Deep mutational scan, measured.
Amino acid sequence: NRTSFTQEQIEALEKEFERTHYPDVFARERLAAKIDLPEARIQVWFSNRRAKWRR
């Protein structure tokens, strides 16, 4: 089942994506704690966001 992201979560994710397309585990963990999502969801979001960026 899909995770629905809040506007705040999307903004935080997009901001980090501007900084780096490949956040390391520490950056992902920090973001996970900040926006209250599992680190695995963040990893998947970045993977999908990079795919979207390449299109």
Rank of each mutant, 00 (worst) to 15 (best):
N1S: 04
N1Y: 14
N1Q: 04
N1D: 15
N1R: 04
R2T: 11
R2F: 14
R2L: 13
R2Y: 14
R2M: 14
R2I: 15
T3C: 05
T3L: 11
T3S: 15
T3N: 15
T3I: 12
T3V: 09
S4F: 07
S4I: 10
S4Q: 12
S4T: 14
S4D: 15
S4A: 08
F5I: 10
F5C: 09
F5Y: 10
F5T: 06
F5H: 07
T6D: 06
T6R: 07
T6E: 04
T6F: 03
T6C: 04
T6W: 01
Q7N: 12
Q7A: 13
Q7G: 11
Q7T: 14
Q7P: 12
Q7I: 09
Q7C: 11
Q7W: 06
Q7E: 13
Q7K: 12
E8G: 10
E8S: 14
E8Y: 03
E8W: 05
E8M: 04
E8C: 09
E8T: 10
Q9Y: 02
Q9C: 04
Q9W: 00
Q9N: 04
Q9F: 02
Q9A: 06
I10G: 05
I10V: 08
I10S: 15
I10N: 05
I10R: 06
E11V: 12
E11T: 10
E11H: 10
E11I: 11
E11C: 09
A12R: 04
A12N: 06
A12D: 07
A12I: 04
A12K: 11
A12W: 06
A12Q: 15
A12T: 14
A12S: 10
L13E: 01
L13H: 01
L13D: 01
L13I: 02
L13R: 00
E14G: 02
E14V: 02
E14A: 03
E14Y: 02
E14S: 05
E14W: 01
K15C: 10
K15L: 11
K15S: 12
K15N: 13
K15H: 11
K15G: 11
K15Q: 07
K15E: 14
K15F: 05
E16G: 02
E16I: 12
E16F: 09
E16V: 09
E16A: 11
E16H: 03
E16Q: 05
E16Y: 04
E16M: 13
E16C: 08
F17D: 01
F17T: 00
F17G: 01
F17P: 01
F17N: 00
F17R: 01
E18M: 08
E18S: 08
E18D: 09
E18P: 00
E18R: 05
E18G: 09
R19Q: 14
R19C: 06
R19N: 04
R19I: 09
T20G: 10
T20F: 04
T20Y: 03
T20W: 06
T20M: 06
T20V: 07
T20N: 11
H21G: 04
H21D: 03
H21Q: 13
H21A: 11
H21R: 08
H21E: 08
H21L: 05
Y22W: 07
Y22S: 06
Y22Q: 04
Y22T: 10
Y22C: 09
P23Y: 05
P23K: 00
P23V: 05
P23N: 01
D24M: 02
D24P: 03
D24T: 04
D24C: 03
V25R: 12
V25A: 15
V25F: 15
V25Q: 12
V25H: 14
V25Y: 08
F26P: 12
F26Y: 11
F26G: 15
A27T: 13
A27S: 15
R28F: 10
R28W: 04
R28I: 14
R28T: 11
R28Q: 06
R28D: 02
R28M: 13
R28P: 02
R28N: 03
R28H: 03
R28S: 05
E29K: 07
E29I: 04
E29Y: 07
E29F: 06
E29M: 13
E29Q: 13
E29A: 13
R30W: 07
R30E: 13
R30V: 09
R30K: 15
R30P: 02
R30T: 05
R30G: 06
R30I: 11
L31K: 00
L31I: 07
L31S: 00
L31M: 07
L31W: 02
L31V: 03
L31Y: 02
L31G: 00
A32G: 11
A32L: 03
A32H: 03
A32P: 02
A32R: 08
A33Y: 10
A33I: 12
A33R: 11
A33P: 06
A33V: 09
A33N: 09
A33Q: 15
A33T: 06
A33E: 10
A33F: 05
A33K: 15
K34G: 07
K34D: 11
K34I: 03
K34F: 11
K34L: 08
K34V: 14
K34S: 13
I35N: 05
I35A: 07
I35P: 01
I35R: 02
I35E: 03
I35W: 06
I35F: 11
D36K: 06
D36Y: 06
D36N: 11
D36M: 12
D36R: 10
L37T: 09
L37H: 02
L37R: 03
P38V: 06
P38Y: 02
P38D: 13
P38E: 13
P38G: 07
E39V: 12
E39S: 09
E39N: 05
E39R: 05
E39M: 10
A40M: 08
A40L: 06
A40N: 07
R41F: 12
R41T: 12
R41E: 15
R41Y: 08
R41W: 11
R41V: 14
I42G: 01
I42D: 01
I42M: 05
Q43N: 10
Q43F: 07
Q43V: 09
Q43G: 09
Q43D: 06
Q43Y: 08
Q43R: 13
V44R: 08
V44M: 09
V44C: 09
V44D: 14
V44G: 09
V44K: 10
V44I: 15
V44Y: 08
V44N: 12
W45K: 01
W45A: 00
W45S: 02
W45H: 01
W45P: 00
F46A: 00
F46Y: 04
F46I: 02
F46G: 00
F46Q: 00
F46R: 00
F46H: 02
F46T: 00
F46K: 00
F46E: 00
F46P: 00
F46L: 05
S47T: 10
S47G: 12
S47F: 04
S47A: 14
S47M: 12
S47Y: 09
S47P: 01
S47W: 11
S47L: 11
S47I: 06
N48E: 15
N48M: 14
N48C: 10
N48I: 14
R49N: 04
R49Q: 14
R49H: 13
R49W: 02
R49E: 10
R49S: 07
R50W: 01
R50V: 06
R50P: 00
R50M: 03
R50Y: 03
R50G: 01
A51W: 06
A51F: 05
A51R: 08
A51Q: 06
A51D: 10
A51P: 02
K52C: 13
K52I: 09
K52W: 09
K52H: 08
K52S: 13
K52R: 11
K52N: 11
W53H: 15
W53D: 13
W53R: 07
W53Q: 12
W53T: 07
W53F: 09
W53Y: 15
W53A: 13
R54L: 12
R54Y: 07
R54S: 12
R54M: 14
R54F: 12
R54A: 14
R54I: 07
R55Y: 03
R55N: 15
R55F: 15
R55S: 14
